[in-house]
Each structure stands twice: as C-alpha cells, then as structure tokens.
C-alpha cells in the first residue's frame, strides 16, 4: 500500500510536470543566453542555468515529457507485440510455444545497447530509434509474463468450462485468458516503464537517443559531465530526476502487484 502511494505520487509528479510544460515553463528551455551562463540557484532560476545559460528547471520539465513519451511508446510497442505472442505461445501448439521461448531467449541475449547502436546507425540516432530499440528489447519480458500467466489460467476450471461450452481457442484466449492476466501485464508495464526511462537516459547520454535541442534528462547529464567538479548541481539535478522516475515506476509496479496479482487475490475478498 505504501509503495503504491509513494510510487503513484512520484509518477504523478513527473506526469504533472510534463503536462504543465505544454502550457508553461519558467523560461524557454532552449533559449541560449551567454550572459546567464552557470547561474546558481536563485529566485529567477530555481535550479540555476547550464553552461549555455539555459534554465535548468525548464529543461527538466520539458525533459519529463521526453522521458514519458519514450517510455510510453516503448512499453506500448513491447506490450502490443509481446502480449499476443505470449498468449499464442501458451495456447497454441507446443512447437510454437517453444519457438517463441527460444526467440525470446535470443532477443534477451542480444545486448540492447548494440541493438540501439545498430538502429541508430541504420536510421539515424533520434528519439524514435531509441523508442523502437527499447521497445524491441522489452518485448521478451512481456511475452514471458504473458505466456507464464496464460499457461496458469489455461489450466483453470473456467477455461475447461468454456471449452465444454464449445468456445474456440482464440475466443478463450481473448475473452477468458487475457482479462485474467491483465493485472500482471499492468504490473509488468510499470516495471518496464522504469527500465525504459533509465534506458532512454542512457541512450541520450551516449548520443544515441534524443538529439539537441530537444531537452532530455540523459543529455542534460552528458552536457554537464565536465562540470561535475565545478557545478555538481548540473549533474545532480537530472540524475536525481532519473533516479526518482525509475524509483517511482518500480514502486508503482510493486504496489500494483500487491493489488493485482491473482496469487495474492482473494486474501482481501475473504471477509466480504
């Protein structure tokens, strides 16, 4: 319960900041002003300015947008591809299940960073390629969770009852299995979102993700790394933002698991 509230609050804060940035930011986050270089924290610039004189608070807000955008698309891709794959692997013929499991292992064994570099080399480094790379690398975890959970649901008596009522396998997968594994997939989404946030920051830090001038937390880190000794604030601020985002999504996932995991379900229902 506590992790649900704390995780929800952190995620909510980031979402709020991102939404607010569409309407208002203290300054234009891309506005370069040599006169305002490396200003410390004061009333005009809450988190100071970077070495180009850009307002850090504004960059942070717009960066939240990038972070959420990348996470949303990457997790969306992974869920949309991985879930049907997992369901198919669970309910289809045995060889198909094996095939999906092996391809999963293959993708998991392939370094995600290498994939990102390859995609970046092929299609040019951008937020888009970063999203796709993270999404592809996340597909296996969804396929696995979906397959394992679906296999469990497929042994239940209500699936047998549905079969005895003449339901076809596809209909059973969609109508009976999917709703009963959805909880676990939501948990997986939250956990994967945290990982995607970190991955996006890492790719942008390496120059494989979001390109200037679009603000991104990973690039804020990278642009300030030489100033670590002089102006640690410039590294600490985006670093803390990334850490809090990852923590928030992980906690949210944890909290949701307590709520939605069927193995823990029924504990609270008993008294009703």
């Amino acid at each position: 319960m506590r992790s649900l509230v704390l995780g929800g609050a952190l995620v909510g804060l980031i979402v709020l900041a991102a939404l607010l940035s569409f309407l208002w930011t203290p300054y234009d986050p891309t506005l370069v002003d040599a006169a305002l270089r490396l200003r410390g924290v004061d009333w005009a610039h809450w988190l100071g300015t970077d070495r180009f004189g850009r307002d850090v608070a504004s960059q942070l807000m717009v960066g939240a947008r990038t972070t959420l955008y990348v996470g949303l698309v990457a997790v969306g891709v992974a869920a949309l591809v991985g879930t049907p794959l997992g369901l198919l692997a669970a309910s289809g013929p045995r060889w198909l299940g094996e095939l999906v499991a092996r391809v999963n292992d293959l993708v998991l064994a392939f370094p995600a960073l290498l994939l990102a570099i390859m995609l970046g080399a092929g299609f040019g480094a951008s937020t888009g390629t970063a999203m796709i790379a993270i999404g592809v690398a996340t597909v296996p975890s969804f396929a696995r969770v979906a397959r394992a959970a679906a296999m469990q649901v497929l042994t239940t008596e209500y699936v047998l009852a549905a079969r005895s009522a003449g339901r076809r396998p596809l209909a059973i997968s969609v109508r009976h299995v999917l709703p009963n594994v959805a909880g676990l997939l939501i948990v997986q989404s939250s956990v994967s979102f945290g990982i995607a946030v970190l991955a996006e920051a890492a790719l942008s830090f390496l120059g494989l993700g979001t390109q200037p001038p679009t603000p991104s937390w990973g690039r804020m880190l990278q642009e300030s790394q030489e100033l670590l000794a002089v102006q640690p604030r410039l590294v600490v601020v985006p670093g803390v933002a990334i850490a809090l985002a990852v923590l928030g999504f992980s906690l949210l996932g944890d909290g949701l698991r307590d709520r939605l995991d069927p193995r823990l379900k029924g504990v609270g229902d008993a008294g009703r």
Binding site: T156, E157, S164, G166, R168, R175, P179, N180
Partner: peptide, 24 residues
C-alpha cells in the same frame, strides 16, 4: 467437437468457485 460441446453435449462442473471466470 467444438460444435457439439455446449449445444448437444453440456457439462456442469464440480467446483462452482473456480468454474466461472472471475473477470466476467
């Protein structure tokens, strides 16, 4: 068999607690 199940042949199961889909 799929065509016959539920239309010509139907079955009532033992465990009412688990034979219904909890999410429907």
């Amino acid at each position: 068999l799929t065509k016959l199940r539920g239309s010509r042949l139907a079955m009532v199961f033992q465990e009412p607690m688990t034979a219904l889909n909890p999410a429907m």
